[in-house]
Structure formats: structure tokens, C-alpha cells
């Protein structure tokens, strides 16, 4: 569990650098196996389905549906003052799920089955992160 006062920032690794590059270019792409065709998320070094290292990245539309959600009302220290805010599990139309927030003034509208659209949010000077707004 994250306990610090600073909001955590993703630090790309040798596995995920390519993904974060796509986010920074505002063209988020998900890993797809060149051998078996399976897509997955978050990025692994091997295809979780067939263990092939032969992975490609395919761009996504940014459209998705809320698979599940929670509204955080008692956040950890780094997120104090932002509550209530929505943490969602979004199912992208391309067949993977991704965790993010839905940026909205009305968290009551964040419900399962609701359509959302990806946006890009500046996390640090040189890193963006994917987020969502209600479609």
C-alpha cells in the first residue's frame, strides 16, 4: 500500500517504455501477440496467453465501457482533498481492461455500463497518463 504524501508517478521500465511512449504521443497502444493474436494489458515481456516474446503494439480508439468502479471517499494521504473521486476498471472496445480515474464533477454518473472516452493527463513534465471522461 502506498503511504507517502507525494502522488505516485509511473516509472517506465524496459518492458513498458514503448507503451508510455505511445501515451506521451497521445496515441495509446496496447500489446498484441504477433503469434497468437491475443491482446493484453498492462504490458508484459511475454504474451500471457502463449508466452511468445513476439509482441506488437496496436493503437486503441480510446472508447470503452465501465466494467466496474469505486468512488474513493477516504483516500490515502497523497490524494487527500480530491475526494470523492472515481477509480474505474474500463473495458476498452479493443478487448482489454485498464484502471484509471473518470474526470467528472458528478461521480454519481460513474456506473457500470456507462460509456467513457480516454483523455491524456499530464502527470509530470515529461509523462502523461491515460484517464477517462464520460462519453
Amino acid at each position: 500500500m502506498m503511504e507517502g504524501k507525494e502522488r505516485p508517478v509511473p516509472v517506465p521500465t524496459s518492458i513498458t517504455r514503448r507503451f508510455w511512449d505511445s501515451v506521451n504521443a497521445e496515441a495509446l497502444a496496447i500489446p498484441r501477440c504477433r503469434d497468437c493474436g491475443a491482446v493484453h494489458f498492462y504490458p508484459h515481456a511475454l504474451c500471457p496467453s502463449c508466452m511468445s516474446p513476439n509482441l506488437d503494439q496496436v493503437p486503441v480508439s480510446g472508447n470503452g465501457t465501465i466494467y466496474s468502479y469505486t468512488i474513493i471517499r477516504s483516500p490515502q494521504p497523497a490524494f487527500k482533498g480530491m475526494e470523492p473521486y472515481a477509480v474505474v476498471n474500463v473495458e476498452l472496445d479493443e478487448g482489454v481492461r485498464i484502471m484509471a480515474n473518470v474526470r467528472t464533477d458528478d461521480v454519481e454518473k460513474v456506473r457500470i455500463g456507462v460509456r467513457v472516452k480516454m483523455i491524456y493527463e499530464q502527470s509530470t513534465d515529461d509523462l502523461k497518463i491515460p484517464q477517462f471522461v464520460l462519453a
Partner: peptide, 26 residues
């Protein structure tokens, strides 16, 4: 987790389990 969860402030395991509860409810 640092890369793909913590930036979104899920409040640790309670938030992660909240996602499970609400899907179960659905």
C-alpha cells in the same frame, strides 16, 4: 502497481476490493 495502479489513488486494497464488490453487485 506503481506504474498502473497507484497513480490513480485506489486507496490500496479497500479500493481494489471496492471494484470487485460493485461488479458483484451488478
Amino acid at each position: 502497481r506503481v506504474e498502473f495502479e497507484e497513480a490513480y489513488g485506489p486507496a490500496g486494497p479497500p479500493g481494489l476490493f471496492g471494484l470487485i464488490v460493485n461488479r458483484y453487485k451488478h
